[in-house]
Amino acid sequence: MKIKLWGVRGSITTTGPETAYYGGNTSCVDVWEDGCVLVLDGGSGIQKLVLDNELVTKRIDVLLTHLHMDHIQGLGFFSPLFDPSMEVHIWGPASITRTLHSRLSRYLSPPLFPVLIRDLPCKLTFHEIQNSHFTIGPFTIHTDYVIHPGPTVGFRVSGRRSTFTYIPDHEPALGKNGIIKSSQWLSGFDLAVGADLLLHDAQYTGQEYLKKKGWGHSSMEDAGLFASMAGVKRVLFAHHDPSRTDIQLDDIFTAFQEKNSYTFNYQLAREGMEIILDDL
């Protein structure tokens, strides 16, 4: 399984020289195995994915964790949607009130966007997901709702030999005393347990989180605790706060490392990073 990060910034794009190392594009990751590709989230990073990758398949599956703007804003610039030879499947969390197609149309329609979904020339199919299990090519995918404002899921993507868990927006500590230290009471636990690689929300420092409870994101400390409880092998801290420069991110992470040690490898997610999950 090969994974590439095309966008790891949270909330809004932050293009500029001061964010060039970790990157300013919002959430997008691709996962390849046996010539099959999954695209996780459609943030602004999805545009670079198309430019850099020559697709070897005529089918592409885009899995959306949720429909906040930083996870869908790249869709309007995703070239397979405008290619009549392409079969595009968009998977996203179900809502109790409106269909996925209807909710995405709020963005992909005037006045926010000039092209209507119904006018896209590709063969487009929508799939509503909940606490679901399904397969796409060589991948088995498990999705669960996780704690974040609005319908939001995380993904557990299992290939033939390895498992990648993707939960870029997640606030498992929401509550009076933070994370309940019991796996039964941990949002997202079933998605992450024993994963070879976890990409997880770590937008804030512990101090910042105290002022931003309920905004749907995690501190680095809570991301580390979540990963520890889930017994993952490696972690990428992601959804970097848009106010951070590369230098600030490095300083914050260095200070975090001095105070926290784990049995697993952990690092900051960086745009352009490629990871191959080896046979285990």
């Binding site: 606490n131 009471w185 949002s187």
Partner: peptide, 8 residues
């Protein structure tokens, strides 16, 4: 398994 998030 973990409880549903609405329980949590």
């Amino acid at each position: 398994p973990a409880y549903e998030i609405e329980i949590i």
